[in-house]
């Protein structure tokens, strides 16, 4: 039995892409395999680690818990879409670089998208709020301290 394929139009980082995928194609896989946007990382594939977090209409969501076919009506932003228009690092990316907010980098795309949306909602977080902002993302390397610093630095850079 050949699997039914669906024509799906995805809007990612402002560009429109047409792909033909089975309904079971996870959005994370569509981004990585079909669109070759491998910045979005996949860790646990059941919603726990946060590495696959993208922005859907500006809100952070797990791309491993959505199907590409369900993403048609939305504007998607991945880590590739967080740079400044001239291609230089966006404020959250810049802050991670300055604060040593990453080591292996596996978790980083999920943190960057989550923090970008978090700072949009709360541009001047307290230390506690900065910690809370990243509480749904896991990092095995850094011990989080430098990521919290990066949240605070990104808030400064964006202000």
């Amino acid at each position: 039995m050949s699997e039914e394929l669906h024509d799906v139009r995805l809007t990612v980082n402002g560009a429109t892409h047409e792909i033909r995928v089975p309904a079971r194609r996870l959005l994370s896989d569509a981004l990585r395999h079909d669109l070759r946007l491998t910045g979005t990382h996949v860790g646990c594939e059941h919603g726990v680690c946060g590495a696959c977090t993208i922005l859907v209409d500006g809100e952070p969501m797990r791309s491993c818990l959505m199907f590409a076919v369900s993403a048609v009506d939305h504007e998607i932003t991945t880590v590739e879409g967080l740079t400044n228009p001239d291609g230089s690092l966006g404020p959250v990316q810049q802050a991670f670089a300055e604060c040593h907010g990453l080591q292996c980098g596996f978790c980083t795309p999920g943190f960057l998208t989550t923090i970008t949306a978090g700072l949009r909602e709360n541009p001047a977080p307290t230390h506690e709020e900065a910690r809370d902002m990243i509480s749904g993302n896991l990092c095995r390397c850094t011990g989080y301290q430098n990521i919290v610093k990066a949240v605070e630095r990104a808030a400064e850079l964006s202000s």
């Binding site: 996870l26 594939e45 919603g47 797990r62 818990l65 959505m66 199907f67 076919v69």
Partner: peptide
């Protein structure tokens, strides 16, 4: 039924559930 998928998609991915059809109510 597929609503937010935050419980159902993990069950599908782990193959603890494998329904023949998903009815996505998001539209």
């Amino acid at each position: 039924v597929l609503a937010g998928g935050q419980s159902l998609v993990p069950l599908l991915s782990m193959r603890l559930a494998s329904p023949a059809t998903l009815v996505d109510i998001n539209a």
